[in-house]
Simulated assay, not measured.
Amino acid sequence: MKPLAILRSGKSFHKINSNRTAVLVVLLFSQLNVLAQKNVTHQQQIWYGYYNSLTFNENWCLKSEIQERQFINPSAQHQLLFRTDLEYKLEGNWNVFVGGAFFLQSPNDPDSDSNLVVPELRPNIGFNNKQKLSFLTISHRYKAEARFFHDVENEELTGGYRFSNFRLRYQLGFDIPVVKKENQERVIFKLKDEVMFNVGSKIVKNSFDQNRVYLALNYVVSPVIAVEAGYMNWFQQQKSGVDYYNRDIIRFSLFHNLTLKKKNHE
């Protein structure tokens, strides 16, 4: 059965497109605002990630990832996550995706004496858009996710999962090829900025959730393998509204692209 015509029309996406300037202004001012606040806790982390893309045909793709996030100085686990999204290609360089993530959340303080790991379920839906220009590619990602945390009582897991809040995310990205070989991009410089906002009755003082700025170099080893190393600054507001985390993060990623499409033999 074909997707609904309203998804194929692309009209609603053009409307989103026209609001990008306003979104960029929000990105800038939200970052300036949080940087002016006090009570900032500085932390260092290192992230390892494996990203798999399984293409079924011209329209459908399954994307999965595993990330391990560790504190350094001192060393401690922060998060382990698994995420899967089913993506469908729309018209006009737009994709729609739906899926979810499973998080295992350790304490936010690496010096904590607690070893409690709290599971989180996070279903999501979103849209991607890419614009390839002569010397770079501009990407936009709009994403909404619901957060369900496992109940905790007296530092122990109890009961089941409870809805917490919705979170809205927007990411702007620039991919700039710096090395080409045989007309193929081999080394790509990446610059991304993502802002997130919390929505829900439980959100009182931290409607602004966080902002992430990311710089990286991506090396295309082959058509199916790429590796990436980068730096991220993760600035996050806590529930109090006046306390923030400012995290410096080194990221190492492996990208693995597979396809089930049949090759045409001439």
Rank of each mutant, 00 (worst) to 15 (best):
Ala5Phe: 11
Ile6Ala: 06
Lys11Asn: 13
His14Lys: 06
Lys15Val: 06
Asn17His: 08
Ser18Asn: 06
Ala22Arg: 02
Ala22Ser: 08
Val26Gln: 11
Leu28Asn: 04
Phe29Asp: 03
Ser30Gly: 09
Asn39Leu: 07
Asn39Gln: 08
Gln43Pro: 09
Ile46Arg: 00
Tyr50Ser: 10
Ser53Pro: 10
Ser53Gln: 11
Thr55Tyr: 04
Phe71Arg: 00
Pro74Leu: 05
Glu87Met: 06
Tyr88Pro: 14
Trp94Ile: 02
Val98Thr: 01
Phe102Gly: 02
Phe102Trp: 13
Phe103Ser: 05
Phe103Thr: 01
Asp111His: 15
Ser112Gln: 03
Asp113Cys: 01
Pro119Ile: 03
Pro119Val: 03
Leu121Asp: 02
Arg122Asn: 10
Pro123His: 06
Asn124Met: 07
Asn128Gln: 05
Asn128Thr: 05
Asn129Tyr: 14
Ser134Cys: 14
Thr137Arg: 00
Ser139Gln: 09
Lys143Phe: 15
Ala144His: 14
Ala144Ile: 15
Val152Asp: 07
Val152Lys: 00
Glu153His: 08
Glu155Gln: 08
Gly159Phe: 15
Gly160Glu: 04
Arg162Asp: 12
Phe163His: 13
Arg167Asp: 15
Leu168Val: 14
Gln171Pro: 10
Gly173Met: 11
Pro177Met: 13
Val179Arg: 02
Lys180Met: 09
Arg186Asp: 10
Val187Tyr: 14
Lys190His: 15
Leu191Trp: 15
Phe197Glu: 09
Asn198Gln: 11
Ser201Thr: 06
Asn206Arg: 02
Ser207Pro: 08
Gln210Lys: 04
Tyr214Val: 05
Leu217Val: 00
Val220Trp: 08
Pro223Trp: 08
Gln238Ser: 08
Asp243Pro: 12
Tyr245Arg: 00
Arg251Leu: 12
Phe252Val: 03
Leu254Gln: 03
His256Thr: 07
Thr259Val: 12
Leu260Gln: 13
